[in-house]
């Protein structure tokens, strides 16, 4: 009885380590395709930027307006009790630029673009499209996976920046436009408090890391999927769940490194 549990744990651990190894080798293989992609087939990258980036824009903007407005409302109401409503700008700005922008954008990205990537690549595997490409002497890792990964890495930082900027305007709209806070204090306090290097550059670094990890998990899950309908659906779920967990774990790690120094 106990022996079985121990054996199960061992098997799980070995499988996990093997998957990690496969994932890392896969990542290196994909990266090696980047130069050829950029210099010889930029068209592939552009069409993926459209699918991965542009098509995620709507959900990013809608969510960030919402998040910004809620932040504006809640923080204003709390701060006004202390007569500190002039701190609304920095409070909203810092939380968006440092945390909510990169993290929320990455989570939404994992749900919107990541799942689509996994499903697409998994389906291509299940319908032998990847094998077919391989037999046509075209490396699917370079032709299919590389443009998608690079598009994800480029798109997420841009989406996160849009999230933060739009969110701040959302908070401004509620805190200043509707609740009557002071516009000058909102902007000047924010400018005084948000440091472009410590806050904005670090926020960008975060979202670049998230972009790499989320897209990597998504394309790997698709490429590694069991080539059946069930396998693809499982892989898609795993891509979103693992991607989101990785974002949260990395966020904690990166925040601890960046903002405690």
């Amino acid at each position: 009885m106990l022996r079985q549990q121990v054996q199960g744990l061992g098997r799980w651990f070995i499988n996990t380590v093997q998957r990690l190894g496969r994932g890392n080798l896969f990542f290196l293989r994909v990266i090696r395709g980047f130069p050829a992609l950029i210099f010889r087939q930029p068209g592939l990258l552009i069409s993926q930027l459209h699918i991965v980036g542009v098509l995620s824009l709507l959900i990013i903007v809608v969510s960030s307006v919402n998040v910004g407005m809620v932040l504006g409302l809640q923080m204003y109401n709390t701060l006004v009790d202390f007569g500190a409503e002039s701190s609304l700008g920095p409070a909203v700005g810092l939380s968006l630029v440092r945390e909510l922008g990169p993290v929320m954008a990455a989570l939404l990205f994992a749900g919107r673009a990541g799942s689509a990537l996994t499903a697409e690549i998994g389906l291509m595997k299940a319908t032998e499209q990847l094998d077919g490409m391989e037999m046509m002497a075209v490396d699917p890792v370079r032709r299919i996976v590389a443009p998608r990964l690079l598009a994800g890495i480029i798109s997420l930082p841009l989406l996160a920046a849009i999230f933060s900027a739009v969110g701040i305007f959302g908070a401004y709209f509620v805190g200043v436009g509707m609740l009557g806070g002071d516009a000058g204090a909102f902007w000047s306090q924010m400018q005084a408090k948000i440091d472009w290097h410590d806050d904005i550059i670090n926020g960008i670094i975060k979202s670049v890391v998230f972009g790499i990890v989320v897209t990597w998990i998504a394309v790997f899950e698709g490429y590694d999927a069991v080539p059946t309908a069930e396998g693809v659906s499982r892989a898609t779920t795993r891509a979103v769940v693992n991607g989101s967990l990785a974002i949260l774990a990395l966020d904690f790690l990166l925040t601890a490194i960046m903002f405690n120094g």
């Binding site: 389906l123 291509m124 319908t127 032998e128 499209q129 094998d131 077919g132 490409m133």
Partner: peptide
Amino acid sequence: FQNGALFT
């Protein structure tokens, strides 16, 4: 391939 494996 069995089902053609056309690029969808």
